[in-house]
């Protein structure tokens, strides 16, 4: 039944089911003051470090029986659902996944054709997405924040506060777009990711638990595999059919999260792939010139 367990899923922990969907179940784990999120997904492959992929059909039957508040325990033998009558899931060594969110690519390039495809495809999704309450406001605020970040080369606290927690969904659209932006900055090896992390941390309490934990991951350079795959095709050569398949996979996450993350990533790559003029010269180099 278990297909793969991510590197961050295994271990000894105990948590509580936070939210359940047809294709995913979030488990919140609290160790001392630290909160983390483990996610069970119905899918043919694992998508993240903290995820456990389960064979689809069995997963759906299992997820239908899980409810928020139920206890879940993980140990070396597998996953257990105490006091529920639900059988434990055995986790073998072979099912442990070595996949972890990769470092940024060596070369920093942008594939214009893939970007155009993704931009057009997102444009087509826009009509449906914009029917969601406050979605347009969230994107407007996010785009303004990105533009300002590019102009001033540092995050504007007020604009950032207006993005986090903005829009529809358990992971509000603004947050998903920020995750996408982090993925772009990470891929571009931009020092702005660090500035963004510093600016974002004080605001993390202003959004939902799931969003907060995904943003924390993003700020340390850990992303879902479909978003990483999308970044790869946006930055490197890829067959159109591959771009199409990967885009479809990346935007299938959640109801609107996938599209919002893809927008954040695309916008980030397009805006920041040419660095701000002030980053072109390092301070020490400038000093050297004068000495």
């Amino acid at each position: 039944m278990i297909i793969r367990a991510g590197i961050g899923f295994e271990g000894n922990w105990q948590g509580e089911i936070h939210s359940t969907y047809a294709e995913a179940v979030n488990v919140c784990v609290r160790d001392s003051d630290e909160e983390t999120l483990k996610t069970l997904i119905a899918g043919e492959e694992n998508i993240g470090e903290r995820c456990l992929a389960l064979e689809k059909r069995s997963a759906r039957h299992l997820f239908a029986r899980l409810k928020p508040g139920m206890m879940v325990r993980c140990d070396q033998l597998g996953l257990h659902f105490p006091k529920t009558g639900i059988s434990s899931l055995r986790l073998t060594e072979s099912q442990k996944d070595s996949w972890s969110s990769p470092p940024p690519p060596e070369s920093i390039l942008i594939n214009d054709l893939s970007c155009k495809f993704v931009r057009d495809a997102l444009q087509k999704e826009k009509t449906n997405l914009n029917a969601l309450p406050l979605r347009i406001a969230a994107q407007t605020r996010f785009d303004a924040f990105v533009e300002d970040l590019h102009s001033h080369n540092k995050p504007d606290d007020k604009l950032l506060a207006g993005v986090i927690g903005a829009g529809p969904g358990l992971t509000p659209s603004g947050d998903d777009m920020l995750v996408g932006l982090c993925c772009a900055l990470h891929g571009l090896k931009s020092s702005l990711l660090e500035s963004l992390a510093v600016a974002l941390r004080p605001h993390l309490g202003n959004t939902t638990l799931v969003s907060r934990l995904l943003l924390k991951d993003a700020l340390r350079g850990s992303f879902h595999n479909p978003l990483i795959q999308l970044r790869n095709v946006l930055m490197h050569d890829a067959e159109p059919a591959k771009v199409c398949a990967i885009f479809h996979q990346a935007t299938s996450i959640g109801a609107s999260s996938g599209c919002d993350g893809a927008w954040g990533l695309l916008n980030g790559l397009l805006v920041f792939h040419q660095p701000h003029p002030s980053s072109m010269f390092r301070l020490e180099d400038t000093n050297n010139c004068y000495h």
């Binding site: 309450p133 406050l134 406001a137 506060a161 207006g162 993005v163 986090i164 927690g165 903005a166 829009g167 529809p168 969904g169 358990l170 509000p172 603004g174 202003n206 959004t207 939902t208």
Partner: peptide, 17 residues
């Protein structure tokens, strides 16, 4: 009718609208 997570920003946006 609208259903949203009660984040500070969403409340601001609902007040603004």
């Amino acid at each position: 009718a609208s259903g949203l997570m009660g984040t500070t920003t969403n409340l601001d946006l609902l007040l603004e609208s």
